[in-house]
């Protein structure tokens, strides 16, 4: 896998619900989504976002990933070459599985966000024993 050469991927812009009052630039982060029997995992590339800048929510089966870039440490000076634009991140997914909301876990490392959504265990059918009495 590591032998493969990485190619340049154009960043896709995302539009938030409704029109924003601020002229904010949003990008849709590239994601990997995979599913095992126990959980659904979403991996998203959000370079430039620190742990305080991530906003995650799962509401009505819609998972929203929002990342705000920290403005601290932003380079100043004259831009002499611009190959990529800087903006915040936003992407939404509809989750079809029933998710155990209390056990959602998210980790952020090197600008990569990993969200683990454990599937809710379906309630075991209760067996009612009939006693002969």
């Amino acid at each position: 896998m590591s032998e493969q050469e990485m190619k340049f991927q154009e960043k896709k812009t995302a539009t938030p619900d409704g029109e924003a009052t601020k002229n904010q630039l949003y990008f849709a982060p590239h994601v990997d989504i995979f599913e095992t029997e126990q959980e659904v995992t979403v991996v998203a590339d959000i370079p430039g976002v620190g742990p305080d800048g991530v906003e995650l929510s799962l509401e009505k089966n819609i998972l929203t990933i929002q990342g705000r870039r920290s403005t601290a440490g932003k380079p100043v000076g004259r831009l002499i070459l611009e190959e990529y634009e800087i903006g915040d991140y936003l992407r939404r997914f509809t989750v079809t599985e029933t998710i155990d909301q209390d056990k959602i876990e998210a980790t952020l490392a090197n600008g990569v966000l990993k969200v683990c959504l454990p599937k809710a265990v379906p309630a075991q059918p209760k067996k009612i024993e009939v006693r002969i009495g």
Partner: peptide, 24 residues
């Protein structure tokens, strides 16, 4: 450099693969 990872986890089915892994 290189970005490692991206190997399919056992028993996982992928819905989306947009992230690239490899060397640059």
């Amino acid at each position: 450099g290189q970005r490692s990872g991206g190997d399919s986890e056992t028993g996982a089915s992928y819905h989306r693969r947009e992230i690239q892994y490899g060397s640059f």
